[in-house]
Design a protein around this nucleic acid. Structure first.
Length: 916
DNA sequence: GCACGACCCTA
DNA sequence: GTAGGGTCGTGCT
């Protein structure tokens, strides 16, 4: 044995990929590796590191990587029990194989995966061919069985331990010659592969016998003369030893697509390597690839021809300061089939944002920034904003001039404040990325550039600073602002090309993008711009009332506790409750501290006075801090209304989210909470109409599962929870008790959330056993629901994603995770996503239909002002209130056609609370 | 000044 | 048991 010695000039290096894959998978520090979205990458990293090390040790070597194929091999046919004791490949290893193959392929290394045989056999065949041709061959493996392949020309190297073995090495290690290894292995058998050998015969005995008799055949012939227990074992093994010998023999004559001398590396696919290393967050591979690209392009640049210099130059960005340059670019924009467009402003809030400049890109690397309002000291003279906008207006408003942008809803809103109605939005990279895969990345431009282009962009913080020292865009010098702004447009166009190519491959996704997300964006913009009217006086009064009550509660609590403390601090509260007052600890937080959460307080409130007061305190201070104090502050001075932002590319499932303020979590469950809703009012002469889908997710479950009982219950218009209770508890509809209905409701909700018996038992405060009984009963009555749940889980595991009725996809990176908690969590998400996601699709389609209808109305009679997942809220003029309300109900109910009817309930009121 | 956990509001 | 956002207190930089 010797450590890696100098290699022959250009050896054939055969890599046993599968053996390294398994070994790397079990290395602790590699096991910890995974992407930010939960895809394990330890085994990939391990194998790549190993290949890298081989490339370093054998710079001129011809590296060929061999993997086991999926499925059975000829050895299984020979011996049904072969490897029967092996557990199936863990899912978190399986998911690493395809990416690893892709990466190795992109590295240009020949990759062999041959059906019906193992990697050993392919390596054996290649080594044999090479050895016959007198080629120096190195087999890189961690598998001792390969020692049988060692010859004068063939050596083994274990790249993980860096131990190399030639013929002498084999003899030293195993005390038998390479040509005796098969005999040696047959005698010992192999527990892991389930190959029978001679009982109690280990390496020592096997080597001893082979030293005495030379071959297995001779050992068997002399079996009768072997004394003692071992002799007996040997004689017992005689009948199966020939089979063991055969199983241990590596094939040398596998049918291969190419002969060894014809296997050559191919070109390195840098682009693919960048994509893959970015996708799987393989930092080292990414850096090395980028370095190699740099080296390669440097070499190209050093070539005498300079004709491609312009092409390579990615900094061909212009700053437009003169009318002449502006005119030139206007022509470019008009001539372009599609151009990228971006605005630079003073604020992320579209209502406050002032336009500072615009940027364009018409081709990769060809971009310009047109500043109009930089006003730092010594700022150069710029074109006049009003003039620029007036000139651009016809272009920007022309629906036939196609634009692409990143999150253009924002730009559309900003431009609306300058009386420009941005049209011709053909693509939006944020939405493209979101539809393509909602979960593997955030959808901001910096993240997208990293993921899809493998490029790091100039970040806003790089040029504007951060924290309190951050300046607004008008303060940023043009030498910094221009490259940033032009790059935004340039990158957007590049991103569009890459993402759209991927998206185009999936018809369903293109459909979701074109028919739902892209047209929805301007509808949301309209809702945001219009805003919601808030009665700030009413909220101010509520705040005052709340303040009084909160102060009272604080005093009472302090008295009970015997000291003053901050009721808002869970930490201080813990001290008081569990240390000072010595209350029982019912539950702990994930970090191990005793919990003071609502459900705990509720339990404690039965026996102690303080928790009850605290619950009231919490409820009221939440109300005051989050709603009654904050909402009036969000009123825009110009419009007198509140303008939320609807985020279209945040949630995994396709729902919208709302911020600044969040209008999707306004209280409704308690009386005090509902008062906040009373402050959501309509303009003079208008009323609030709130229309919501009833039981939409359960209806979708009925549609998706095609369950007869469930479909029938909806078709006949029954109260679904009562109907469920009637079935599950075998009670006539009319005799269903309140308690039974409540339980049925919990089951129904649980199903939507992918529940377990454990979860249901907690929800209903019953035993796990009873919960399981309920669930069993449910599935007995609605068997197709069970089938649907199971097949959804199955599909998720196989494909890695689930889909909505309209083809939207949700990827579940952790669906095959080895961590049980994570896997189970992904399974629940897989169950929930098609229902929640389809509901999101439906209301989005309804919004489009309603918006189309609103556009046909002559006056400003109807305004869609809010969306809360299954509810749309409108401001409607009083004169045709009922007619319009009914029209909206019908549009929402007919928005899509499912196997169940959709029903919408709508209410009217002078405020949002009354409209419910 | 910022990130994070605990808590609580919604569908 | 699903999907979100906002506020507060706390502890680190």
């Amino acid at each position: 044995m010797a450590s890696a010695t100098k290699s022959p000039s250009n050896p054939l290096v055969l890599v046993d990929g599968s053996s390294y894959l398994f070994r790397a998978y079990h290395v602790p520090y590699l096991q910890a590796l995974s992407t930010s979205y939960g895809q394990p990458t330890g085994a990939i990293t391990g194998v790549l590191n190993m290949i890298k090390s081989l490339q370093k040790d054998y710079p001129d070597g011809n590296i060929v990587v061999v993997f086991d194929a999926k499925g059975k091999t000829f050895r299984n046919e020979m011996y049904a029990e072969y490897k029967a004791n092996r557990p199936p490949m863990p899912d978190d290893l399986r998911t690493q194989i395809a990416p690893l193959h892709d990466i190795i392929g992109a590295m240009g290394l020949p990759l062999l995966v041959i059906d019906g045989v193992e990697a050993d056999d392919v390596i054996g065949t290649l080594a044999n061919q090479a050895s016959n041709l007198g080629m120096e061959t190195i087999i890189s493996t961690g598998d001792k069985d390969m020692a049988q392949l060692v010859t004068a020309h063939v050596r083994l190297i274990n790249t993980m331990t860096n131990v190399e073995m030639d013929e002498a090495g084999v003899l030293e290690k195993f005390a038998v010659r390479p040509d005796q290894i098969i005999d040696y292995l047959a005698l010992m058998g192999d527990k892991v592969d389930n190959i029978p050998g001679v009982d109690k015969c280990g390496p020592k005995t096997a080597a001893k016998w082979l030293a005495e008799h030379g071959t297995l055949e001779q050992v068997m012939a002399k079996a009768s003369s072997v004394k003692g227990k071992v002799g007996e074992h040997l004689r017992n093994a005689l009948s199966h030893l020939p089979l063991s010998y055969e199983l241990a023999t590596i094939k040398l004559d596998v049918d291969l697509p190419e002969n060894v001398q014809d296997i050559k590396p191919s070109e390195i696919d840098y682009e693919k390597l960048i994509t893959l290393s970015t996708q799987f967050e393989l930092k080292r591979l990414l850096t090395e690839t980028q370095q190699k690209i740099k080296q390669t392009s440097t070499i190209q640049n050093e070539l005498p021809e300079k004709h491609n210099e312009l092409k390579v130059d990615t900094n061909n960005y212009q700053t437009i300061l003169t009318q002449t340059d502006f005119d030139t670019w206007l022509e470019k924009l008009k001539a372009a089939e599609l151009f990228a467009f971006d605005t630079e402003t003073t604020s992320l809030n579209y209502m406050d944002a002032e336009l500072v400049g615009v940027s364009f890109s018409v081709a990769e690397g060809e971009a310009a920034y047109l500043p109009v309002a930089h006003d730092y000291l010594d700022a150069p003279e710029q074109l006049n904003r009003a003039h620029v906008l007036a000139t651009l207006k016809p272009l920007l408003e022309n629906p036939d001039i196609k634009k692409v942008g990143q999150h253009l809803k924002y730009d559309k809103n900003v431009l609306a404040n300058y009386d420009i109605n941005l049209q011709g939005i053909a693509f939006d990279t944020m939405l493209e990325s979101y539809v393509l895969n909602s979960v593997t990345t955030r959808h901001d431009m910096d993240s997208l550039a990293e993921k899809y282009l493998g490029q790091s962009t100039i970040h806003f913080e790089d040029i504007a600073g951060k924290g309190v020292k951050q300046v607004t865009f008008n303060q940023i010098p043009l030498d910094k602002a221009s490259p940033y702004a032009a790059e935004d447009a340039d990158i957007t166009l590049r991103l569009h090309k890459v993402i759209w190519r991927k998206l185009s491959e999936e018809k369903d996704l293109v459909n979701v993008f074109k028919e739902i997300e892209l047209p929805l964006s301007p509808v949301l913009a309209k809702m945001e711009q219009f805003g919601v009217l808030i009665d700030s006086q009413k909220l101010a009064q509520q705040s005052q009332d709340l303040a009084v009550r909160i102060l009272e509660l604080e005093k009472e609590v302090h008295t009970l506790a015997g000291e003053e403390f901050n009721l808002g601090s869970p930490k201080q509260l813990q001290e008081i409750l569990y240390k000072k007052m010595d209350l029982p600890v019912l539950k702990k937080t994930p970090k191990g501290a005793p919990s003071t959460a609502e459900e705990v307080l509720q339990e404690l409130a039965i026996n102690y006075p303080l928790p009850k007061l605290l619950m009231e305190y919490r409820g009221l201070s939440k109300l005051k801090n989050t709603y009654t104090d904050k909402l009036p502050k969000m009123i825009n001075a110009r419009t007198g209304r509140v303008h939320t932002s609807y985020h279209q590319a945040i949630t995994a499932t396709g729902r919208l989210s709302s911020t600044e303020p969040n209008l999707q979590n306004i209280p409704i469950r308690t009386e005090e909470g509902r008062r906040v809703r009373q402050a959501f009012i309509a303009r003079e002469g208008y009323k609030i109409v709130a229309a919501d889908y009833s039981q939409i997710e359960l209806r979708i479950m009925a549609h998706l599962s095609s369950d007869k009982g469930l479909l029938n219950a909806f078709a006949t218009g029954q109260d679904i929870h009562t109907a469920t209770a009637s079935e599950v508890f075998d009670t006539p509809l009319k005799e269903v008790s309140i308690e039974q209905r409540r339980n049925a409701k919990a089951i129904n909700f649980g199903l939507i959330y992918g529940m377990s018996a454990f979860g249901l038992s907690k929800q209903l405060n019953i035993s796990r056993f009873d919960a399981q009984k309920y669930m069993d009963l449910y599935f007995e009555r609605y068997p197709s629901v069970l089938t649907y749940m199971e097949s959804t889980r199955q599909i998720a595991k196989e494909k890695g994603y689930v889909s909505t009725v309209f083809g939207r996809r949700l990827y579940l990176p952790e669906i095959n995770a080895s961590n049980g908690m994570r896997r189970k969590g992904a399974e629940r998400a897989a169950i929930n996503a098609p229902m929640q996601g389809t509901a999101a699709d439906i209301i989005k389609k309804a919004m489009l239909a309603v918006d189309d209808w609103i556009d046909t109305l002559p006056n400003d009679d109807v305004r869609m002002i809010m969306q809360v997942h299954d509810e749309l809220v409108f401001e409607i003029k009083e004169h045709k209130l009922i007619e319009y309300k009914n029209k909206i109900i019908s549009l929402m109910e007919q928005a899509v056609q499912l196997d169940v009817p959709l029903t919408v309930e709508a209410g009217v009121g002078i405020n949002w609370d009354e409209a419910h």
